[in-house]
Design a protein around this nucleic acid. Structure first.
Lengths: 174, 174
DNA sequence: AAGGAATAGTTCACTGGTGAAATATAACGG
DNA sequence: CCGTTATATTTCACCAGTGAACTATTCCTT
């Protein structure tokens, strides 16, 4: 059932096979990209599998966490920033959280275009309940990495992020 | 428009804010996980933005690449392995590729349960057309990394993958 | 104060992916 | 052979996320 391991070896084999037919292909970089996607996707799947029984998916959860750490509430637009979601989807997330009794909507008094979302006591209880068992899982993913390894990994990932940003700005798509 | 950079700083701020309220939270590991997800997702978005004008998404493309490197064709199940997709979705991908004239379906003679997919000349032409412009983009994401950095990144990501696998097997979900 | 641009949120139609059940064929044990 | 079991693919109903268009409100400029 060692799923990622198996998936990785299939991925490696496939990339090598394509690399034989197309020698110009930057194999290592393709491998890195696929690896990133595969690891990230699996990690996300793990987290969501844990959240599902509680009726949340990862973006619902990120939004709930943002509300948990916003004592004065937050507007959907602010939450979009934190949860890395578009406004459209934030509407759905808000609906879901309100329906589940985890958050409450209210209209802003100063700016009547704005909606304010606040976490409810039920929402706080849920966060305090589901968060602690999540920690060992997150830690487990990096268990075999030394402190230095983790710092290196973070540094390299941030570098890749910056590179992607420069790509985007220099390259307004053909 | 520096999107990832901005997203990252919002993410960092959010994690730090939660970390103040919940000191037991493993901040670095949470940061790493979110970073992985964010970078992976953006990278995927980049690739798909390039593929979209050609009528393909990333899993269509992975499947097409698998067919390109399979001179004798492949069954949907085999393609699932390469493209990291479920059988259900592979049916849809197959439909899409056939409809676009990039692949052809045929029934296997020995085992009549099986379907064989083969790339068409049109499909081969498309691969040879869209692949080369993709290379500089992939390379660009890792442009600021030294050869050693890339090897380190790959090593660390593979370690994380193995850790996740052991988590899964040791932890049959509560 | 009026008109137009900007902003906040929502709705709608669509894409992409999933799990469970259905269908068809093959393989196996007696 | 025959019934059971396993495998390959598809269908169906659903969930999550997106871009474009819409509504309501506020800001800005004269």
């Amino acid at each position: 059932m060692s799923n990622l391991r198996e998936g990785l070896s299939r991925m490696d084999a496939g990339i090598a096979r394509v690399g034989e037919m197309i020698p110009e292909a930057p194999q290592q970089e393709v491998r890195l990209t696929r690896l990133l996607l595969l690891v990230g996707g699996t990690l996300l799947g793990e987290v969501e599998a844990y959240l599902k029984p509680h009726g949340l998916n990862d973006s619902d959860f990120r939004t709930l966490m943002a509300l948990y750490s916003s004592p004065d509430g937050a507007t959907p637009s602010e939450l979009c920033g934190f949860a890395q979601q578009g406004a459209t989807n934030m509407t759905r997330i808000g609906n879901a959280l309100v329906k589940a009794g985890l958050a409450a909507r209210s209209h802003s008094a100063e700016d009547r275009r704005r909606i304010l979302l606040n976490i409810t006591p039920t929402g706080k209880r849920l966060v305090r309940k589901i968060l602690p068992p999540l920690f060992p899982r997150v830690l487990g993913a990096y268990a075999s990495l030394s402190a230095g390894d983790k710092r290196t990994l973070e540094r390299l990932l941030r570098q890749v992020a910056l590179n992607i940003d420069s790509l985007q700005s220099s390259d307004p798509s053909p």
